[in-house]
């Protein structure tokens, strides 16, 4: 071993473990996705790409893909919008306040996902807490439908993934040197301008990491979309689950899972490029 391959040699045990643990099981599924599933008979022997083409040509599936990505984007954006001010406050306040706020942010993570989702069902149902309250004070006449549609999903998922965004942003904001912001102030920049031209771009790596994390977690979430979306309002994760567990059509489920992975990777790559450009190569 010498030259450029020396490093590879040193890393190879780790590399093998990672390949064995993560990549191999995924690749083992690949052949599965290339056969047709015939109900009543089983998986056929013949090779085909139809599981992939079907997902992209059938407008029912396209709608689900679109809905999933839209849901991911909305949740990510909302988490960012709600999380940034919170993280900013936490980064710039006294240590005592920061500790208290961190505890509050992390606390929901200790609760079971199912419990939290059921909590939202109680709140958002047609005869739930929110609708009853709104009707009691006379703001609305009939319940607003907030379950089994995008509203419910986005509310539930934003609540669940907000802590991840806040923690990522907190580190990023804490890493912004105060000197640099003060330098901008001495150069006659207002507080608002300092925030938008200095602080925000300098936290781009954190925003990117937080957004990718929340986006990926959101579009792959299963429990919350199942509970808050019901059987009919499907996203990719519940669709894949149903292909496996309700239709027993594993080839289709596998191919959908690969397409979801491909879309995810594509979006991570694209987001990385955009953030890098915006932050002058910092992200």
């Amino acid at each position: 071993m010498s030259g450029p391959f020396k490093g590879v040699g040193l890393a190879s045990p780790l590399l093998l473990v990672l390949l064995g643990l993560f990549l191999a099981p995924v690749l083992l599924m690949l052949p599965q996705s290339l056969h047709e599933y015939i109900p009543g008979t089983g998986t056929s022997e013949a090779w085909t790409l139809q599981n992939y083409t079907r997902l992209l040509t059938d407008d029912y599936y396209r709608e689900i893909i679109g809905r999933t990505l839209w849901m991911g984007s909305l949740v990510t954006f909302l988490c960012f919008l709600l999380g940034y001010p919170l993280a900013y406050f936490m980064a710039r306040t006294t240590p005592a306040w920061r500790a208290a706020a961190t505890l509050l942010v992390i606390f929901p993570l200790f609760l079971n996902l199912v419990v939290r989702s059921f909590g939202w069902i109680t709140l958002l149902a047609n005869r739930g807490v929110v609708n009853n309250l709104l009707m009691d004070i006379g703001l609305i006449d009939s319940p607003i439908k907030m379950l089994f549609n995008m509203t419910g999903l986005v509310i539930g998922l934003t609540h669940i993934y907000l802590p991840f965004m806040v923690l990522m942003l907190l580190t990023a904001i804490q890493n912004v040197p105060r000197d640099v912001e003060q330098a901008a102030a001495t150069l006659a920049a207002s507080k608002l301008r300092i925030f938008f031209t200095i602080t925000l771009p300098l936290t781009a790596p954190g925003i990117l990491a937080g957004s990718i994390l929340v986006f990926v977690l959101t579009i792959s979430a299963l429990v919350t979309p199942r509970l808050l979306g019901g059987p009919a309002y499907k996203v990719m994760a519940t669709l894949i689950y149903d292909e496996f567990m309700q239709k027993l059509d594993w080839p289709s489920g596998t191919s959908f899972a690969f397409i979801l992975t491909a879309i995810t990777l594509l979006i991570i790559w694209g987001a990385g490029r955009v953030a890098r450009k915006w932050s002058g190569g910092l992200a």
């Binding site: 000197d179 640099v180 003060q182 330098a183 901008a184 001495t186 150069l187 771009p201 932050s279 910092l282």
Partner: peptide, 13 residues
């Protein structure tokens, strides 16, 4: 008032 910082405090982006 112009200020030159010990850390330079340049805008890295």
């Amino acid at each position: 008032i112009g200020l030159v910082f010990q850390s330079y405090a340049l805008f890295p982006h």
